[in-house]
Amino acid sequence: MKQLYFLFWGIVFGIVLIKSEVASWFRIYEMFQFDSFHMYGVIGSAVIFGIILTQVIKRMKIKSIDKQDLVFVDKDFMPKRYIFGGIIFGLGWALTGACPGPMFALFGAGYYSILIAIIFAILGTLTYGIIKDKLPH
């Protein structure tokens, strides 16, 4: 039953990605040209509301739906992996016009050629896992 909860929110996310055009290659190109506020508005307002909701959870000590305490773990501070990994991801984001969430939304929307990007994204993750100890982190 609990999986239905995650299925529901996944469906909501997929609908939002298509309806807000975040899943559009064109919107990503436009964002990297700084020609429209749209994507900055989406990400910026998501972060602002996200900060508020995160603080609400922390300060009101909201529990999970299973009545468990919620703990936020700070990510380890590893600047090299964030900047190098971030740049590599950014190159791919602009080339495909899609980050991982939109890839799945686009496939559902019938843009089946995105499956090539999904398969190679899995291979990219596989490659990272194999050579990660040789990379600066």
Binding site: F89, P100, G124
Partner: peptide, 30 residues
């Protein structure tokens, strides 16, 4: 383009430890 772009997305997200949802939304929110 789709293959190399997808590969860089998959490699880069794991190297960076997250993508737009994990870093830009969740990480910045925290």
């Amino acid at each position: 383009l789709l293959a190399i772009g997808g590969f860089l997305v998959g490699f880069g997200t794991r190297y960076a430890g997250g993508c737009t949802s994990g870093h830009a939304i969740t990480g910045l929110s925290q």
